[in-house]
Design a protein around this nucleic acid. Structure first.
Lengths: 147, 147
DNA sequence: CTTTATGCAAACATTTTGCAACTTA
DNA sequence: TAAGTTGCAAAATGTTTGCATAAAG
């Protein structure tokens, strides 16, 4: 456990849902010489140790969450902000689904990921155009994307 | 609607869950001169027309699904294969969750994405090491990653 | 004939890697 | 000292863009 790894861990734990380069910027304020390589290597290491989790939002850019306990996310389709959903897991319901799935598909099931898609309050008020376009579209066709 | 866009659409519609470069390879068999740029541009266009959907699996690589009706996916954590979950949406349950979320967070909610994580039958039998490690880990800590 | 899309190549952004020097236990 | 980690720079990967040409409506 080097100083670098320690600082990276603290930063991910304190600020939720940071991208790799947000972590990098924050680390650099405390350790001005860290390299991007070190940040990536440690984010991977910490994730595989189970000390942080890797999230995959809509863009091809990973985010990291200091909160490793199971919970759901809500992602803003506009600004890609990620927040925790303010309710707990429905344990039994999904447990049953996972069991059923395992039997139906012969997959070994290890978990699930539930993500809500929407617009954050800022984007809702700021971007009327997008909002009304989306409302129209989703009324016409139902919310289908990426499900 | 150009020939290229037509072929790309057909290919995405027929083979489910293809990555951009899988689409590219398949298109090239029919139209040997298409460029990657054209493929990406058309995948984006078709997605925003609602004719295909963009998925975001675990890696920083997009996949595209010809099936735009709402359904869930199961992703292999090892080989990244994506398949449809063999059961339909639980409409009411999630509708209620979405409404509740909207009220609790002031987000505008447009949908959700539910993805199951596991190992496909091939990877289960082929990669015993990973499998036993995962079983151990998930028994100790619960399945937490990426939720 | 106007608009839109194409192919190509270069640019971009993100993530990964090789390697010699340096830390840590 | 042995094992693991760092910083740096280069490479790999995935995606986007500018532009002149070509095709579509």
């Amino acid at each position: 456990m080097t100083r670098q790894r320690q600082v990276i861990l603290e930063i991910v734990k304190s600020g939720h849902h940071l991208t790799a380069d947000e972590v990098y910027e924050k680390v650099r304020k405390r350790l001005p010489n860290v390299s991007m390589g070190t940040v990536y290597r440690n984010l991977d290491t910490l994730a595989s140790l189970g000390q942080i989790s890797k999230l995959q939002p809509d863009r091809p850019q990973m985010s990291f969450d200091g909160n490793t306990s199971p919970h759901y996310h809500i992602t803003c389709m506009r600004c890609n902000r990620i927040e925790d959903a303010p309710f707990p897991l429905e344990n039994d319901g999904f447990g049953n689904l996972e069991n059923a799935l395992g039997k139906l598909t012969k997959y070994g099931i290890f978990g699930h990921r539930l993500e809500f898609l929407g617009l954050c309050p800022d984007c809702m008020s700021r971007e009327k155009d997008f909002f009304s376009w989306e409302v129209e579209r989703s009324e016409k066709e139902g919310a289908k994307d990426g499900v």
